[in-house]
């Protein structure tokens, strides 16, 4: 119940088994061949191509010279890239933890068998059906000091009310987090709710007999049982963090100044607008290295080590 690790098929013990497994596996392998080719050629191939290009002085068109680590030196001396890197850490931490907490609380709320559950579920999940561009534009209007929330509250008579995060250099990245939370919490809720519904009702009865307070059951019994759901939600949210681009473009265009720039936007701008393939691919390579180095320990502990133990 508490692990979802994918285990390799058990090691065959005799020759007959090997023959049989080859016979059954051959069609499967054949069916998977196109996918495997696509993965190898398109994904891995493009990845290697990108890394290679980051060591060139390519501008508009790819050029296969050798430029050493110059693009990387430029990259780390570039304010915009450094700010982008900081922003993605801030956004990632707040977005993932925020979505998990809000999603869990919403799921618990719905789990209480409230009236109109279907309505609430739809309302909470609805933002996820919006594209990031729509989300960004809507929040841009809502948070614009001259048009949205600030003006509304001031018009109601609170003249001194100020909420100008969107146009404030230091706070603008948090408005992106807010919009992201609005967008992503619903999905987390749906995943958590599925998990909650799957929990054995007898556990609740047992806890009641023992007189354990409800909140304690949630934190000490339910949450550990929900671990697979938390992992799934985290992985889904993390991919959203890495590819964060359209929300920023729609909401702030990286501004005010460079306050809300993110790495994906840095890569896109340099590849397609600034004719700077060298610098763009260098930034993309750094993103790849970061993602791999975050994932590697996790993959190791979940997939590699457990198998080693079982063998």
């Amino acid at each position: 119940m508490d692990t979802i690790s994918i285990r390799a098929p058990s090691v065959p013990s005799s020759g007959a088994k090997v023959r049989r497994s080859v016979r059954t596996r051959l069609p499967a392998a054949f069916a998977l061949l196109p996918t495997a080719l696509v993965v190898l050629v398109v994904y891995i191939g493009c990845m290697l191509w990108t890394v290679r290009l980051s060591f060139t002085s390519s501008t508009l068109l790819p050029k296969l010279d050798w430029f050493g680590f110059t693009q990387y030196t430029r990259l780390f001396a570039n304010d915009r890239f450094v700010t982008s890197a900081e922003n993605i850490v801030i956004f990632g931490a707040l977005f993932i933890s925020g979505c998990l907490i809000i999603g869990f609380l919403l799921a618990v709320f719905i789990e209480q068998n409230v009236r109109g559950e279907g309505l609430f579920r739809t309302v909470f999940l609805y933002p996820y059906a919006m594209s990031f561009v729509v989300t960004g534009v809507a929040w841009q209007w809502f948070l614009n000091p001259g048009l949205g929330l600030q003006k509304l509250v001031r018009d109601m008579g609170f003249e001194s009310f100020t909420f100008d995060w969107l146009v404030n250099q230091r706070m603008a990245i948090y408005t992106i987090v807010i919009a992201g939370l609005w967008h992503g919490s619903g999905l987390t809720m749906a995943i958590m709710l599925a998990g909650l519904r799957g929990i054995d009702k007898d556990l609740w009865k047992a806890a009641k007999i023992d007189g354990i307070p409800t909140w304690r059951v949630y934190t000490s019994v339910v949450l550990p049982l929900l671990r697979p759901m938390v992992v799934t939600a985290t992985v889904l949210l993390a991919t959203g963090v890495v590819k964060l681009y359209d929300l920023v473009v729609a909401m702030t265009l990286g501004g005010p100044g460079i306050a809300t720039e993110v790495p994906a936007k840095f890569v896109m701008d340099h590849l397609f607008e600034r004719n700077n393939i060298g610098l763009g691919t260098a930034a993309a390579t750094i993103m790849l290295i970061t993602v791999v180095s975050v994932l590697a320990p996790w993959v190791y502990t979940r997939y590699v080590r457990p198998q080693g133990r079982h063998a």
Binding site: T59, N78, D79, R80, G255, P256, G257, I258, D269, H270, E273, R274, N275, N276, L279
Partner: peptide, 15 residues
């Protein structure tokens, strides 16, 4: 200007 210079200028100006 080549686009990579005007882009870098734009980053400086907006900051």
């Amino acid at each position: 200007s080549p686009p990579n210079f005007s882009g870098a200028m734009q980053d400086a100006v907006t900051q």
